[in-house]
Design a protein around this nucleic acid. Structure first.
Length: 239
DNA sequence: AATGGATCCAACCGCTATAAC
DNA sequence: GGTTATAGCGGTTGGATCCAT
């Protein structure tokens, strides 16, 4: 039996997903909703096990995912929440709309785990690189969105999305508002990241963010069932 | 231009919790 | 109460890409 990356093992395909596999999974979710992942293979002919399907959907195909680089503000939130909760990635992810626990975990490992031993110099170098890449990816994202919106199947897809994810659009609008608020609260995230690693400013912003969470939740039609990603930060009971 | 280290990120694994039977 | 299926979590891996030297 083939066992290397991208081949079959125990009857299941492993490794990187193809566009066709993605399409099958998306269609399955459109028809049957999220869950019952072990039925995917039987109902779609996809040779992926349930676990792999779930992971692919949750981490990559979900329509409410926010693509692109972690912003400086998100970075600060991650720092603060990690200080509070440790490696509880899924808990941290709930405070970052559109980000997955996997994404945050990856980000932490590459940026902060080693950063402890490195100098601020490396921190700024890294941030400058991120900033450049982020600008590029934001441009690409806009182009991709335009392309998708012009597809002929979009009206139907939108309708189906509305059924499956009745709050998707609202959630994205809220997330957009959320981030525009964050980005407006300081010039740091939109300006060239040169000498902006001032710790005081950073923590001030975090406390402002706490205030903002409270304000946002009180002044919008917040519903914790349909917008779980915007839950207020709180220390778990067991702490 | 070549190269080696750093970084990114998708995908895997093992384990645990919970629900259904 | 035991078993099985499913979902979710955190840790790890490895290929691709970036970038400094």
């Amino acid at each position: 039996m083939e066992s290397s990356w991208g081949f079959i093992e125990d009857g299941w395909r492993k490794g990187p997903w193809t566009a066709d596999e993605d399409r099958l999974l998306i269609e399955y979710v459109k028809l049957h909703g999220e869950g019952r992942w072990n039925s995917v293979a039987r109902l779609t002919g996809l040779r992926r096990n349930g676990k792999s399907c779930r992971l692919r959907w949750v981490n990559y195909l979900r329509p409410d995912l926010k693509r692109g680089q972690i912003t400086p503000h998100e970075e600060r939130i991650i720092l603060e929440l990690h200080a509070k909760w440790g490696n509880r990635w899924s808990t941290i992810a709930r405070s970052l709309p559109g980000r997955t626990d996997n994404e945050i975990k990856n980000y932490w490992r590459t940026h902060f785990k080693k950063k402890n031993k490195n100098s601020c110099d490396n921190f700024e170098k890294s941030r400058a690189r991120l900033w450049k890449r982020q600008q590029f990816q934001q441009q690409q994202q806009q182009i991709d969105i335009k392309k998708v919106m012009t597809l002929p199947t979009m009206p139907q897809a939108k309708q189906e999305m509305g059924i499956l994810y009745p709050n998707t659009i609202d959630q994205q609008e809220q997330a957009g508002f959320f981030y525009s608020m964050l980005n407006n609260s300081t010039s740091m995230s939109q300006s060239e990241p040169s000498s902006s690693s001032n710790e005081d400013v950073m923590w001030d912003d975090l406390w402002n963010l706490d205030d903002f969470y409270g304000h946002f939740i009180n002044t919008t039609t917040y519903n914790k069932v349909t917008t779980p990603c915007l839950q207020p930060m709180a220390t778990p009971a067991f702490y």
